[in-house]
Design a binder for these strands. Structure first.
Lengths: 229, 229
DNA sequence: TTCATTTAGTGTTGATTTTACACAAAATTA
DNA sequence: TAATTTTGTGTAAAATCAACACTAAATGAA
């Protein structure tokens, strides 16, 4: 005799943002038990007729109002007991948001959505700390072999922003000359004619990531890959 | 008004084996509709109280009798309509089997389980061709940066087996001297005192993968990584 | 107005890694 | 014993990586 399966499917997203040389994660404060009042990753149950990706986008829209620039599946968690109420299998996603879309929508309760610096995280509900740590690992590893760092910057950015981004995420110094040389050698950045005036110091040219060019290069076997001194 | 969610959770596994310089995948012939009579990846619904990994192991045991040497989560598929009956979210796994465990258990119906060379695949049920192609991509990419190739060989193997394995999976020639030099330089192989007599030609020393050593090296920052001419 | 401070921008050299490449050694079979 | 098969090995040129420091252009303060 078979017992009918009753497992709920949820999605959760680890959304990263970067501003002011700080890497942050988007969290929501839970309004219901269990873990009422705790911070958690945005997410929720998948609806009957929507794809997993649609579910993530919908939940992010509903809960945070934030627009996502990059989204990929991270990992699926399904150990019985990870949710104290029911069996929930959670498909988690990894998302990046550019500073342009950093702001939290006005129609969400600001009390309940917040960016947290990766260095000052609160305790998280469920197994969300584990999910977050896997996402962070993915980010740290992936920026080395895929040009996803640009998703965390404005469309046009001074080179030093990219440099600082890598240093922040990888948490170490990078040789400026070697880094610039390497990235520029890929030929996937376009120099704009605009310049950026920092609060003090020499003005900087603005660059933008050329996704079109990147795709072409990919087709001819090019592989984005960074190694550091 | 909320409609209660009714989504089933399944697991499916792409199991790779390697023998006679051929890479193969383990498939089962479906005994029930839909796709009755078609070949498909082994898998099935997750039980109420088992973890996803346990579900994969159980299904593989039940359906194929094959013992798995390496298992990792691959990707989760959840587009509505991928199963014509119900909404099914399938968490897929990627598995490797060594030739020692290659044989299909006697208590399964041999008619319904079979190894297929990656070059002579039948049509597959559901979206299993897509799953398989992602698994293959993963395998091709992962053998370059993780020592998982050994899971597809016997515990003790002549060096040329490793060489052929890489050539088969990557589908290209590899320089024998450079390959050997690189792999040996890692220090994760132990030379046994046994030798292997090929059907003709010079006898070869047998090596084995030293998982212990690999773990130690990993801790001190070593990273398995292969690049080829 | 110039001096101190801040950030952007740039090349060279030595060390290391990668690539290309060919022949001798040990066994089997005819 | 000659032909065939597979193992095992070194070197040199090319490419990449790693280390390293000063000048340029702006701002703000003295």
């Amino acid at each position: 005799m078979k017992i009918p399966q009753n497992i709920k499917v949820a999605v959760d997203a680890v959304v990263f943002g970067y501003e002011q040389k700080e890497l942050s994660v988007l969290l929501i404060k839970r309004g219901v038990e269990p873990f009422k009042g705790s911070w958690a990753l945005p997410g929720g149950l998948v609806l009957e007729n929507e794809s997993l990706e649609d579910a993530v986008q919908r939940e992010l829209q509903e809960e945070t109002g934030v627009t996502i620039d990059y989204l990929e599946q991270l990992y699926t968690f399904g150990i019985p007991g990870r949710d104290p109420r029911n069996r929930v299998v959670s498909v988690t996603y990894f998302a990046l948001v550019s500073p342009n879309n950093f702001k939290i929508s006005a129609d969400t309760d600001a009390d309940e959505v917040q960016w947290f610096s990766i260095n000052e995280l609160p305790e998280l509900a469920f197994d969300h700390d584990k999910i977050l740590s896997i996402a962070l690992k993915r980010l740290k590893s992936k920026i080395n072999y895929q040009p996803i760092g640009f998703e965390l910057l404005k469309k046009e950015f001074p080179f030093s922003d990219l440099e600082h981004l890598y240093q922040t995420i990888l948490n170490r110094k990078i040789d400026r000359r070697n880094f610039r040389k390497k990235i520029l050698s890929f030929g996937i950045l376009t120099e704009t004619d605009k310049i950026h005036q920092p609060s003090s110091g020499r003005p900087a040219k603005l660059f933008k990531f050329n996704a079109q060019k990147y795709k072409e290069l990919q087709k001819s076997g090019f592989h984005f890959e960074i190694k550091f001194a």
